[in-house]
Write a protein that binds this DNA or RNA. Structure first.
Lengths: 206, 206
DNA sequence: ACCTTATTTAATAGCTCTATTAATTTATAA
DNA sequence: TTATAAATTAATAGAGCTATTAAATAAGGT
């Protein structure tokens, strides 16, 4: 019999699903389309993943982990607060630039599917609290030292997420609306990388 | 015969559609559900609007106009540049706060439906150019005067949109994730109103 | 009262989608 | 080579959705 050594098919189904889900979201993607994109029968999609839901979860889980890991990660502790912040923002941005479909997938699914949102809530609780506590502590110290204006940690976080995430949510619309070439769009994104950092750091000045 | 004087039904169908489309988007809302929500037969939805698509367009058109009017509007020309900017940002914010479902509706539909995106493109061209030109001119003057750091108009616009729009895109997720009460959520939104202005104005300091 | 037109409903055609099942092909171990 | 299990396909059940149609009801004008 054939053992499941390098089952190419399962992988290509997963990849096809990934592409389509990122493009169209869950409900607008049919298993038929996934099969076609993967170059196989639609029944095979169900053979490997049983339900569309399970397949989606495999993709979502994966993307969600990426999204979070881009947000919460260790930065070199030898740096100044400002440098740490810059590094974190840029890392977050870079993760999104490498996976520009993630914001759409996550926000679309979380806002339209209550069950997924509940699931998300429990995920949030599992986040490494220490990283956040540390962030909060350092921010408060900077404020005490007068190097940063008084600002709530949640506000700073929201600002960072707003600036980075929304760029990739709104980006495709901007691209079409302004009729940007692929090249010009790339340039716009690239320029926003430093612009985002600039806006956020300036917003912290006392 | 009955003339179409105060046909209550058509209106309640439109309102029901509005609620559901804003909540779930186009594809996840069925005309059956719209009929139910409006308290009538599903066939009646088609009787008044012929197709789901036309009904959606009636809603979308309406919401889109709101969205744009909140963005591009005359402000008192006696004010300083900073005050004008503050007024515009707050007006934009207020429009979104009054219609928090709009960003989801617009971005969801524009990213999943290419036809609608094309339509959107032609709409953009019809925007009052004078307002934008004026904005650009005033910004450049402020930069020349050294009161504002050098920044491209498109960057400033993107920042404003990012800060305001993304708040209402991400908001519902934040609310659930952090388990905020209705009251606390309102408070968060309210505090972001001034925080957004603060971030944007600070980001312009030379 | 009667005719005409508007409103509303029930029924259904026709489509697409998910998931399953039974049958077929492929690969491999013995 | 043959038996066996995995991989793949074709077919289809069953559900939901949009849109239409024909019939029923309401309402107003004359």
């Amino acid at each position: 019999m054939k053992i499941n050594n390098d089952s190419n098919t399962e992988k290509s189904i997963l990849e096809a699903a990934e592409r389509l889900f990122l493009q169209k979201g869950f409900s607008l993607t049919s298993t038929t389309a996934i099969g076609k994109e993967a170059g196989c029968n639609q029944a095979l999609v169900h053979y490997y993943f049983r339900t569309k839901e399970r397949l989606f979860e495999a993709v979502f889980e994966n993307k969600f982990r990426l999204f979070v890991s881009g947000l919460v990660q260790k930065v070199d502790s030898g740096l100044s607060f400002e440098e740490k912040l810059r590094t974190a923002i840029e890392a977050h941005y870079d993760m999104l630039a490498a996976n520009p479909g993630i914001p759409f997938l996550i926000f679309n699914e979380l806002t339209t599917n209550p069950r997924r949102l509940e699931n998300f809530k429990s995920r949030i609780r599992e986040l490494p609290v220490t990283v956040l506590k540390q962030f909060q502590k350092e921010l408060e110290e900077e404020i005490k030292k007068g190097k940063v204006r008084p600002v709530a940690p949640v506000d700073l976080l929201l600002t960072i997420i707003s600036m980075n995430v929304s760029l990739f949510l709104v980006g495709p619309v901007i691209k079409t609306a302004l009729d940007l070439s692929e090249r010009d769009y790339k340039k716009l994104l690239e320029s926003r990388r430093s612009e985002n950092v600039a806006v956020i750091l300036r917003s912290l000045r006392p």
